[in-house]
């Protein structure tokens, strides 16, 4: 380990809506900071080089890989994990759809998968199954074969689009 990695850096950020101040090793990945220092064990470390998506979290509005970002880089950032997205209810419909469709088996990929799916859904409209598959193609799931996940995301997209159309219709 080089000296620069051993250095410690002060960071201030918000995590799941709460202010966090910490002194972090310069070489610590954001996913390790969240899991080890904050006890947010929902997102997981798995491939550790940005391929599997198990560590996917939301940073300043984007779904990012917690294993490819250093905690030190999150200074000033707004970070959301599955725990926070659960508390606010933002993805409650998506979580319910995953349970109803059995779009998870072991559940290890699920927190990352939900954050990635919500990023697509937040764009609005009703993405095609191909678009859903493409958007989730960086999130590895060995258990389900993906079809149930695509089904669940598609169902939520259609429900949200329907609700949005109704709201729009009511206002006209």
């Amino acid at each position: 380990m080089t000296e620069i990695v051993r250095d410690r850096i002060d960071v201030a950020l918000t995590v799941n809506g709460e202010p966090v101040e910490a002194r972090v090793p310069a070489g610590q990945h954001l996913i390790d900071f969240l899991r080890l220092e904050l006890g947010l064990t929902g997102a997981h470390a798995s491939c550790e080089h940005g391929v599997c998506g198990a560590c996917t979290i939301r940073v300043d509005g984007d779904a990012v890989r917690g294993c490819l970002m250093l905690a030190a880089q999150a200074d000033g950032a707004e970070v959301w994990t599955v725990e926070g997205l659960t508390d606010t209810g933002e993805i409650a419909d998506l979580q319910a759809a995953f349970v109803a469709r059995n779009a998870l088996q072991c559940g290890f990929c699920t927190p990352g998968m939900l954050v990635a799916a919500q990023e697509l859904l937040a764009r609005g409209g009703a993405p095609s199954r191909g678009e859903i598959r493409e958007h989730l193609s960086g999130n590895y799931c060995r258990c389900t074969g993906y079809e149930a996940i695509v089904d669940a995301v598609e169902a939520v997209a259609m429900a949200r689009a329907g609700a949005a159309a109704q709201e729009g219709g009511g206002g006209a």
Partner: peptide
Amino acid sequence: VPRPNAPRLVQGRGRFVDD
């Protein structure tokens, strides 16, 4: 029938060994 452990896992409340 729904899986009793699924809601826990979608909320990031699983407890894997590394947790």
